[in-house]
Amino acid sequence: MGYTPCRLLLMDNQQSPPHPDTRRQLQMARSMCWHCQSEVTGEYFCDRCVKVQPVSKETDYFTCLGFPRRLLLDPQKLEAKFYELSRTFHPDFYQTKSADEQTISLSNAAVLNTAYRTLRDSIQRAEYLLALETGSVKDIRTSPPADLFEEILDLQDTLEEYRASERDSDQGHRLRATLQTEQEALERRKEGMEAQLRQLFADWDKLQDAGEATSLARVERDRILKEMRDLLSNRTYVNNIVNDLAATIA
């Protein structure tokens, strides 16, 4: 009997964040070289036998790329690090090595590529950090944010009307123009949210740099994370609407 698969989790190409304790344990476990069993103190290679070491599956993407958990990262530096690590791990350079090393290089390169893809984009980076810090995957908003509620409802009506109308008629042209104006307005709205996000990113980085463990700092941390979560989910919602709009009137 056939069954269509039941997916347990939609990972969306991201690993769910590991529990902090597990992470520490696994990182400790990997400090022994798989090949010569001596302790590995170097970053990616065993100091003794110079064999490449597997990047632990539990290593977060920031650690993987050698960056602190900050939200404003210099794209040039990120790219340079990605290139450097690609030269370290890419399977092309392991063709003449043992099968074990080839397997490690392949899996390390795959992790590295996912890490870079996630951190390269400031929105994905923030969503990932949020998941790391709060231990939950991003929530996907299905209803419009409160301050946009009326606007979105009106927009849906116009969209329906446009879909039903003759594209080349006067009415079609008029509706199209309205939708275009709406699209531009929403794009400006989205840009506004992104500006607010950048401010939160800066706040986060400042807080982390200060590194204070006061209760005030904890309150600030929770405020940033909460605001970031709300903004990110609202932005995604608006972004989807804009894309829909663009596709409809294209």
Binding site: Y3, R7, L8, L9, M11, Y116
Partner: peptide, 14 residues
């Protein structure tokens, strides 16, 4: 997506 690339998926029964 840059290769090598990997994705994991967890499956269960219903």
């Amino acid at each position: 997506t840059t290769i090598p690339a990997s994705a994991k998926e967890m499956f269960t029964t219903y």
